[in-house]
């Protein structure tokens, strides 16, 4: 009976304050979407790190005809220089840091290039001569990149030593920045959401002061009087959280659909991972709304 009564009160409260309730839903929706986006960006970073860090290589690019680096003053790399570099890689001083290496010839480099950009007109403007041959090295410990770089970058026939990890780090720094920005926006939006919930509950308490006054006088418990208001805020916030979760889910669908066809090598987070984020968003939205409502009622609803 009391439950039915409380549910009825919630229903009439939601209906009476419809426009405010809708705005609470929208604001929590937007703010929690940003929270979730920040969280999912972090997940994406971790996933890419796990995926790429095993695969990234240090590449020693060798001189070709058009190289301008200091070590390439004598023109394209000679067979002798190349064999010499191969021997250095086999030497114990270097070998202890690397697990294995392969040589990629200009022809292979051109083939890889053509595969990678098969849809792009750029392929037609590039010739095999323009691409450098390289040694591709898998490190035992990627942190030891510096040693390889120091050993090889001044060798004759070497144009440059590049660490793919550094390129990735730059991407991760950028993604981290984006997630910090998303979190910052989320915080501002959450403040808005809390203020809006506070105002909504206050208006709701005001518009139903006659009912609550009577409830008080006939001896209704604090719970029965306050619960409809609190649940009103919580329900609106949870609906917002569900919308946010749904939006994030759509984003993962898009990542794994269209986008993953364009970035074949990128491991995108899966839709299932939204299931980790969604409960957090719902708890966060519901919890904040509950606390905000409770504190507001303490001030504006005499019981």
């Amino acid at each position: 009976m009391r439950l039915a009564f409380i549910l009825g009160e919630i229903g009439s409260g939601l209906r009476r304050n419809l426009s405010m309730v809708v705005s609470v839903i929208l604001v929590t929706f937007v703010s929690l979407t940003f929270v979730g986006a920040a969280g999912m960006l972090q997940m994406q970073i971790n996933q890419m790190k796990g995926y790429w860090y095993d695969k990234v290589q240090v590449a020693i690019f060798l001189c070709n005809e058009s190289s301008t680096a200091a070590g390439c003053a004598s023109g394209a790399v000679t067979d002798e220089q190349r064999d010499n570099l191969g021997k250095m890689l086999e030497s114990p001083a270097v070998k202890q840091y690397i697990s294995d290496f392969q040589f990629e010839s200009q022809a292979e480099a051109f083939q890889h290039f053509k595969d990678q950009f098969s849809n792009s007109p750029i392929v037609d403007s590039v010739t095999q001569d323009q691409l450098p041959a390289s040694f591709r090295i898998n490190m035992k410990d990627p942190e030891k990149y510096q040693i390889i770089s120091e050993t090889f970058s001044s060798q004759p026939g070497v144009e440059t030593v590049s660490d793919q990890r550094q390129v990735l780090e730059r991407i991760f720094v950028w993604m981290n920045g984006a997630s910090v920005v998303a979190m910052g926006i989320a915080v501002v939006m959450i403040v808005c959401a809390v203020l809006l919930i506070t105002t909504t509950i206050r208006l709701s308490a005001f518009s139903r002061r006659r009912e609550t006054g009577i409830m008080r006088l006939v001896g209704a418990s604090k719970t029965v009087i306050q619960l409809p208001f609190i649940l009103e805020g919580v329900i609106a916030a949870v609906v917002g959280a569900l919308l946010a979760s749904g939006t994030l889910w759509l984003v993962t669908l898009w990542l794994n659909g269209d986008l993953s066809r364009q970035f074949l090598n990128t491991p995108f987070i899966s839709s299932a991972q939204v299931l980790v984020v969604a409960p957090v968003l719902i708890a966060l939205g519901g919890g904040l709304a509950g606390i905000a409502s409770l504190l507001t009622l303490r001030r504006y609803l005499k019981v």
């Binding site: 009976m1 009564f5 006659r210 006054g213 006939v218 009087i225």
Partner: peptide, 23 residues
């Protein structure tokens, strides 16, 4: 201090509902 949107019966019943009396 009656509730204007409730009829006579509902106004009186309200005092019983809010303290959990059965239907």
């Amino acid at each position: 201090r009656l509730l204007p949107q409730k009829n006579v019966f509902a106004n009186v019943a309200f005092a019983m509902q809010v303290i959990g009396k059965s239907r």
